[in-house]
Design a protein around this nucleic acid. Structure first.
Length: 496
RNA sequence: GGGCCUCUAGCUCAGUUGGUUAGAGCAACGGACUUUUAAUCCGUGGGUCGUCGGUUCGAAUCCGACGGGGCCUACCA
């Protein structure tokens, strides 16, 4: 332990780290444990692709120099085998033999190389006597010495360890890498769908003087320079609408929202949100668009709209998704006709009979709670629930023909809310009235009630064209496509 | 926020009713091995049993507090 680095000398190192620290020192004495560059000529992927089906015990004559992380190590007296893995998870075998590499290199390999190290090997591409595609090395170099041991590859890692050490999860678990690729592919597909319809992608503020655009509790922070409290955004809606006022008539944003609320299998404190606005669209066109975005993503990334989930069940996203009225489906399911005129007292009575404990001044809150109790559990496939109560949707336009409801829908997939869409409220006078109603609600102690945003109202006063808007949770879309929990769809979810 | 469960070696896990020095596999260390595939064989080391406190002759084990994690529940998407 005499050669360990200064920083580490104070600490009583675990045995395996101390051993590797010593090897690092010896590698540095010989050259470098972390060389700046290596004479790489081929990737593992390219090498494997070139020889997909070689017979056993073949010498190709092809010389390559390639690098990878050691996942398995099988050393014998005069011939060593190692399984090298690339970042994409492709593997190839390296062989270090006495007669090709020489005594010195064979000894240093056995002495200095550990599981998990990044190594470079140079030599001929061959197949072993068992037919394994291999590089028979004439030379090897350390590419990057690993100081900590990799977990054993024969047991699944614990859930907590995987989330806290996602980089290790990515090294050892194929599915972890796959999910990252699926997510990237979905983002790409969504952007393609928008591009084909002439939508422009923008970025709007995450730090906001006033949070708005949704009903939720915000994270609060402080700007020293402006000496003012700021909020992390709970939604981009009010800024995207300003963009539409400004003439960006088809606009979308994919970015993070932050909500200071509970976390579970379908909720994360920070989550990726897609919002889109289309001038001269309405909530019908947004349903069409949402269905296209999701179906295209499934087709582009998974090659099918009938998606096989993690647990083996099937999530069928194909076809045209049904659009069911909230009031009608509720009336049908509970056996009592519920309309926007039904009084809070009657709704409370209905809630009491099925044991829903709720005490709230708003008619809409009851209708939504009752709907979730009576109708939601029966929704299996994707379905749009349309025409919501007016008092719980302050940013949505009144229905064009039905009194007391607004042109809003929620999309449910696998039982959870996947997306929402409106015919946007663009009348600045009505919007002000809705904000005032929200403020009265806030005065009664509702911490999620919206604030009156004068700057947003000012923008509306300059004229926003009739528009449709949609919001879609990206993490939840990944859940719909994979069947994973939200923390598995996020590369580095929040951990305490 | 409320309820239940859980934390043992680098990783995955055993550990009986409270009883000697806390075990296994992989990983590590020493040795053997020129065709292995989770290589094999022989040998060795590695633990503040989450933390602190209590009960007891004796605590990984029982009790309490705190911390981490999970599930259910409530709020939200």
């Amino acid at each position: 332990m005499s050669k360990v680095g200064e920083e580490y000398e104070e600490i009583d190192l675990p045995e395996q780290i101390a051993v590797r620290m010593d090897k690092r020192e010896r590698l540095n004495a010989l050259g470098s444990a972390y060389p700046v560059t290596l004479p790489i000529t081929h990737t593992i992927e390219a090498t494997k692709a070139k020889y997909p089906n070689l017979e056993q015990d073949i010498a190709t004559g092809d010389q390559v120099g390639l690098a990878g992380r050691i996942m398995f190590l099988r050393n014998t007296g005069k011939l060593c085998f190692a399984t090298l893995q690339s970042g994409s998870g492709e593997r190839i075998q390296a062989m270090i033999s006495l007669d090709k590499a020489g005594q010195e290199q064979l000894d240093s390999w056995k002495d200095l190389v550990d599981l998990g190290d990044h190594v470079f090997v140079e030599g001929e591409v061959i197949t072993s006597k068992r037919g394994e595609l291999s590089v028979l090395a004439t030379k090897w170099l350390m590419a990057a010495k690993t100081l900590r041991p990799l977990p054993n590859l024969h047991n699944e890692l614990g859930e907590e360890f995987r989330v806290r050490h996602r980089y290790i999860d990515l090294i050892v678990r194929d599915r972890a890498r796959e999910v990252v690729k699926i997510r990237a592919g979905v983002m790409q597909s969504i952007r393609n769908t928008f591009a084909k319809q002439a939508f422009i992608e923008v970025e709007t503020p995450m730090l906001q003087v006033m949070h708005g655009g949704a009903s939720a509790r915000p994270f609060k922070t402080h700007s020293n320079a402006f000496d003012t409290d700021l909020y992390l955004r709970i939604a981009p809606e009010l800024f995207l609408k300003r963009a539409v006022v400004g003439g960006l008539e088809r606009v979308f944003e994919i970015n993070r929202n932050f909500r200071n609320e509970g976390a579970d299998r379908t909720h994360s404190p920070e989550f990726a949100m897609l919002e889109a606005y289309e001038a001269y669209g309405d909530y019908h066109t947004m349903m069409d668009l949402t269905q296209a975005l999701i179906q295209n993503a499934a087709s582009d990334v998974l090659g099918t709209q009938v998606v096989q989930l993690e647990d083996g069940t099937v999530n069928d996203l194909s076809g045209t998704w049904p659009r069911v009225s909230m009031y009608e489906s509720l009336s049908e399911a509970c056996g009592v006709t519920v309309t926007p005129e039904t009084s809070v007292a009657e709704l409370k009575k209905l809630a009491d009979t099925v044991g829903i404990e709720i005490d709230h001044p708003l008619h809409g809150k009851y209708v939504e709670e009752l709907w979730e109790h009576f109708v939601k559990p029966g929704l299996t496939g994707p379905a749009f629930v349309i025409d919501f109560p007016v008092d719980t949707s302050p940013l949505t336009r009144d229905h064009r023909s039905k009194a007391g409801v607004v042109e809003k829908w929620d999309l449910y997939i696998m039982g959870y809310e996947q997306a929402t869409g409106y015919s946007e409220l663009v009348d600045p006078v009505v919007q002000r009235e809705r904000f005032v109603a929200q403020m009265q609600l806030a005065a009664t102690g509702d911490p999620e009630a919206m604030k009156l945003d004068e700057e947003f109202l000012k923008a509306l006063e300059f004229g926003m064209p009739p528009s449709g808007g949609l919001g879609l949770g990206i993490d939840r879309l990944l859940m719909s496509l994979t069947g994973l929990g939200i923390r598995e769809t996020i590369l580095f979810p929040l951990v305490k």
